[in-house]
Amino acid sequence: MLHRENTIRRYHTSSAADLIKETMEFYQITQIDLADRLGVSQKNISDILKRKRFINEILALRIESVMGISSQLLLNLDANFKLHLAKETAMESAPQHKSDKFLKRYDWVTI
């Protein structure tokens, strides 16, 4: 049943880093071990886990072959996370109001 008092819950937007961290904890592997298995530097893994850097397609495929996590899922998580960050940044820099550049039909146009 719908009630006006109900609020819409904001869901946590996670990135590939969250899933990678969770998998590392489950298998009890270190950043150094994961970096070695993936053929990248430990700093690269550290930056990804701190969300200073995001994974690319090649690294997603390597993670899939080593950790068994779908490369498509990893890339989608990061894409959604980056879009979420961009929306937050846009909201902070420009309050929500309609732009005069938004597409609109002109009254004089007939079909």
Rank of each mutant, 00 (worst) to 15 (best):
H3R: 04
H3F: 08
E5R: 04
N6W: 14
R9D: 07
H12T: 02
T13W: 01
S14D: 09
S14C: 05
S14M: 09
A16K: 08
A16H: 08
A17H: 03
I20G: 01
K21T: 13
E22G: 09
T23Q: 06
M24L: 14
F26G: 03
Y27K: 12
Y27M: 10
I29L: 10
T30K: 11
T30A: 04
Q31A: 13
I32A: 13
I32W: 08
D36H: 08
N44Y: 03
S46F: 15
D47V: 13
I48L: 11
L49F: 03
L49A: 09
R51N: 13
F54W: 10
E57F: 00
A60P: 07
A60W: 06
A60E: 06
E64C: 05
S65W: 05
V66T: 14
I69D: 03
I69L: 12
S71R: 00
Q72W: 02
L73K: 03
L75T: 07
A79N: 02
L83M: 01
K87Q: 08
E92R: 03
K98V: 15
S99D: 06
D100W: 08
K101T: 12
K101G: 05
L103E: 13
K104Y: 12
W108V: 14
V109W: 12
T110E: 15
I111R: 11
